[in-house]
């Protein structure tokens, strides 16, 4: 009986940190020195430019469908929808698609991340789906999102919008619309978060340095 209590593999329960996605949480990792990358003005400017590019390249803007990868993609997709309405007068549906159950590292790491909301307001069949994520690195999240998307129907095309492309791709995924290309080191973390406390509207992107001791970092999570 005692062996049972202590039987959890030492590594299990960690691995959430390995996620390339990031949450727009205020004050997370506040101990580390965060290097600002994009402020809210930069982000808004990028999203407005991307909205123009989307309209420019779309044959039928009425057929667009924004799908956010949580958590970071959600505020960006909403802003993009607002921009598209402003630029072209189109009302683009915004869905949210959690990719957790489609991740390829659940078995190898044994981690069981918390699930997030999936909400697809209408069918994706025949639509041009724009997957929206905050930070794209390995491409594995986008791969998972594409698999998830196919379970909701057959879009006519899938395109990818990333606010930050930090390189280090591990899969043949390219972004169709990019806010900013940022060369980064592998260990660094790039995160979209609220710029000020209690101000969820103003977002910023920061670079967090790699934790000094990875072992200690995992334990504290």
């Amino acid at each position: 009986m005692t062996s049972q209590q202590s039987a959890r593999p030492p590594g299990s329960g960690t691995g959430e940190k390995a996620s390339e996605r990031s949450a727009p949480d205020a004050g997370g990792g506040s101990q580390q020195v965060a290097r600002p990358l994009l402020d809210s003005t930069d982000i808004n400017r990028s999203l407005m430019r991307i909205a123009h590019e989307i309209i420019e390249r779309s044959e039928d803007p009425e057929n667009l469908y924004l799908v956010a990868v949580p958590n970071g993609g959600i505020p960006l997709a909403r802003q993009l929808a607002a921009n598209l309405a402003q630029v072209a007068g189109v009302d683009v549906p915004v869905g949210v698609l959690d990719t957790t159950l489609y991740r390829d590292d659940l078995i190898s790491t044994g981690s069981r991340p918390a699930l997030r909301t999936t909400e697809m307001p209408s069918a994706v069949d025949g639509c041009v789906v724009l997957l929206v994520d905050d930070v794209v690195k390995t491409g594995r999240t986008i791969r998972a999102a594409m698999d998830a998307l196919m379970d909701f129907g057959r879009p006519r095309a899938v395109q990818v919008v990333g606010l930050v492309d930090r390189g280090h791709r591990e899969l043949p995924i390219k972004l169709d619309y990019v806010g900013k290309n940022v060369p980064t080191q592998v260990g660094e973390e790039v995160r979209l978060r609220s710029a000020g406390e209690g101000d969820s509207e103003r977002l910023e992107v920061v670079v967090l340095p790699p934790p000094p001791d990875p072992g200690a970092g995992e334990g504290s999570k």
């Binding site: 005692t2 062996s3 049972q4 593999p9």
Partner: peptide, 19 residues
């Protein structure tokens, strides 16, 4: 989801318990 396949090797209980 939360319980299945987390302990990746059979018999890991004995190993982990001993450690």
């Amino acid at each position: 989801y939360l319980f299945a396949g987390r302990a990746t090797t059979p018999g890991s209980r004995e190993v982990a318990g001993g450690a």
